[in-house]
Amino acid sequence: MNIFRLAGDMTHLLSIIVLLLKMNATRSCRGVSLKTQELYAVVFVCRYLDLFTNFISLYNTVMKLIFLASTFTIIYWMRFHKVIRVTYDREQDTFRYQFLVLPCLVLAMVLNSEFTVMEVLWTFSIYLEAVAILPQLVLLQRTNNIDNLTGNYVFLLGSYRALYILNWIYRFMTEPNYRQYLVWISGIVQTIVYIDFFYYYIKSWRNNEKLSLPA
């Protein structure tokens, strides 16, 4: 564990806490993409199957359980909470799952380091995570008034991936034989997906304006 990895994990955790607090405090999920949250649920379930087979550390296990529980809580609120579910932008959140899930599944079957169920699902989760934010970004673009917390949520999520890249560089330089090309390339793609958002987020912050993304 190095400082970049820890900072990345904490940023990831913070992004989810921001989203949970926002929804709980405002009783609203306006501007939040249920599709992205459900894709993250698929990502976490497929990746953390090793909770049953492989113990890495208490930190690792606890964080995995927190990510799973918090994501399923968000989905539950958006689908079933009496007040919150009414505020969901169903008509705007139209991204099709299959455009992301199917290509990632095919890619994971072809490009993996071992053709076993566990390994293919793990690789699938790596590919899917890289693009899971897309429905959220599309929804943000369609939302005229992006509230601060939704903007912060996406910004923190993007920062988490950028910090992971620093973590990989650090590990590559300090650990012998540490390399994981599929994870690195997916992580870089995932970070690039955010660059456009980062640009407008920082611009609106510097100009003290409300965040809005050009159509």
């Binding site: 990831h12 890495i56 964080m63 973590n167």
Partner: peptide, 10 residues
């Protein structure tokens, strides 16, 4: 921990 071994991240 090359390739498949590197599953210690979140």
């Amino acid at each position: 921990a090359a390739g498949k071994g590197a599953h210690d991240e979140l």
